[in-house]
Amino acid sequence: MGGAGDLEQIPFGSSEFADNPEPRCPCLLLLDTSESMAGARIDELNHGLATFQRALAADSLAMKRVEVGVVTFGPVQLLNDFQTPDHFRPPLLSGAGDTPMGAAIAGGLEMVRQRKAAYKANGIPYFRPWIFMITDGAPTDDWRAAAAMIREGEMTKGFSFFAVGVEDADMDALAQISVRMPLRLSGLRFRDLFVWLSSSLGSVSRSGMGQEVPLLPPGWARA
């Protein structure tokens, strides 16, 4: 180990990784906030997000490893960039606008790409990112490019993309976007969904980095 190595410059802003060098398990939530979500749906989704934060915070290892990011669509907005559950402040969502799903996916994938680059630059190991999209409608913009990016990402194991349809969501459209079979939420069981999501992320964050983790059956989904 030569002296030159010790004079290496350190980029500023890497403090979060010095503070917590645990491997990261990023999870991006793509949430539909279009007009049709307004009312009971968005209320339940908000409760679900709060539950999510609490459930993650109760798992001391997940607390250091899972990172949550939130992008909403209708219009497409970044609400939270990736951060560990202790810093994650669940946003309060309201429904208004259309369903620009394609733009949301494109933006979200870019966020995931940048986050992975930050992990690599700082020597932080990471698990395959999860992207979790929840919608009650059908895309109102062009989603074909997004679907192609998802196919590519799933094939190269760049991330796992899950789509969840709420009530009258267009499941056929979702099936064309997502490689994995989209799941339909049973009723408005957002809280069950997020409890499941946090415990699944917990098991992933305890696993080996390249391992496939057997997931609990999603009790919140309707066949």
């Binding site: 180990m1 410059q9 890497s14 990784f17 010095a18 700082n122 020597g123 932080i124």
Partner: peptide, 11 residues
């Protein structure tokens, strides 16, 4: 492979 930025050296 390089040690991560900001990490101490083996020394």
């Amino acid at each position: 492979i390089e040690r991560p930025p900001g990490a101490p050296s083996l020394g």
